[in-house]
Design a protein around this nucleic acid. Structure first.
Lengths: 217, 217
DNA sequence: TTTTGAAAGTGGTCTGACCACTCATAGTCC
DNA sequence: GGACTATGAGTGGTCAGACCACTTTCAAAA
């Protein structure tokens, strides 16, 4: 049997050290030379472990300064997942559906949360929609995703929104403000069902619209 | 500005090489020394890139034999990420919630699909649940995910299900068969609401159960 | 006081050297 | 001839030492 890889132990050692020394995101972790001496391994072995963690986005290295623990919430989970998930010919329909899964779920969550449904953001939204034409559609949905509070879901959504078939290109037109107002009103009175159906209606309308007309800024 | 990291280029070079040379999972990729010479970098740099790819589960190294393209199923990724990420309560909650988002959405889809709700798989399910004790909980949910027909959603779910906090460990006990039967019955009569709520009830029950009792095979 | 620059410390890279292991093969023994 | 053994080439695993490029610090010079 192959003996366990050294650098994997190092990964765990570093992990343990971080928790023991109470190193928080943004803090500096010991230098490579220090770690090598402390853990009794060569510097190259330390580096192999660190490079792996860096690729995952768990740490950040700055030449001349040191190695820093990055915010765990900014982990590259989604990016990494995407290399596994989206590399093969994933049908566009699945991407579309999955994005909607997250959107619907988010809007339901927002409706169930009395606080977020009353956030001042929304009043600003209504004003801006009525006054200006250059309000990006994507920002509207993104706001819902953010308010849902699930950062992982938000990241997945952002990733999916980059793929083809994203209906939220361009900015909000006058003709669609009514639909959006309905959605916002439903959210404010915490009417989850109406909010979700309103979102679906808007998306369906967008799908038709972008199919025949393509307006870019 | 820091110049871009060398080993990151190497990662891309290797990926390019893999696709150009049409290397398939299980095949051997050039040795570290070969790669170092070909790409005009030191062997240590090559190793840093390879170690990163290995941690991601993209390649597999066997001392004395070589480095092989992996079937990218054995993500070390999940273990490593989870030890770093999931100490954060919010992140763990996000993973949990996001997994449920996909589950609920899947069960709603399955209920809306007359065909999949009548698939023979389900009758077999009921029998097996009643006859045997060793029916893995995860398989039950997985079946729903598969039947939903969204392969992307399925993949995301599979990955999320590997993280800690997964309630579907172990096998189905006699006491929970009733809950599952209810879910199946709801699916058969395409009662989406009941099916979804049934699933939620089961998950809540599991959460309590695995909290106090831990049964392993 | 301000500016300069030298030194220390850091990550980035390369080299060369071992070690442990696998495998193919030439060689040996029966 | 067939089975076993030893050897060597090739591989990944690890280490030590040496530079380089960069950042920060701080004492010396203006």
């Amino acid at each position: 049997m192959n003996q366990p890889k050294r650098y994997l132990d190092i990964v765990l050692d570093i992990r343990k050290m971080i928790s023991q020394e109470n190193i928080r995101p943004g803090d500096r972790i010991p230098s490579e030379r220090e770690l090598a001496e402390t853990l009794n391994v060569g510097r190259s072995t330390i580096r192999e472990a660190l490079r792996s963690l860096e690729l995952l986005g768990l740490i950040e290295t700055r030449r001349g300064e040191g190695t820093f623990l990055s915010d765990h919430r900014n982990h590259r989970l989604v990016e990494v997942l995407s290399t596994f998930i989206l590399q093969d010919d994933q049908s566009q329909k699945d991407v579309w559906e999955t994005r909607m899964i997250h959107e619907i779920s988010a809007i339901l969550t927002v409706c169930g949360d009395a606080v977020s449904s009353q956030l001042p953001v929304w009043s600003g939204f209504s004003k801006r929609i009525n006054e200006r034409d250059f309000f990006p559609r994507e920002d509207f949905v993104k706001e819902i995703m953010v308010l849902s509070g699930n950062r992982l879901s938000l990241k997945i959504w952002l990733l999916l929104a980059q793929y083809s078939g994203n209906p939220y290109k361009g900015h909000i037109l006058l003709e669609e403000t009514e639909m959006l107002e309905n959605i916002l009103a439903a959210i404010r009175r915490q009417d989850a069902e109406k909010a979700a159906s309103g979102l679906k209606i808007w998306i369906a309308w967008l799908q038709k619209e972008t199919g025949k007309d393509d307006d870019d800024s």
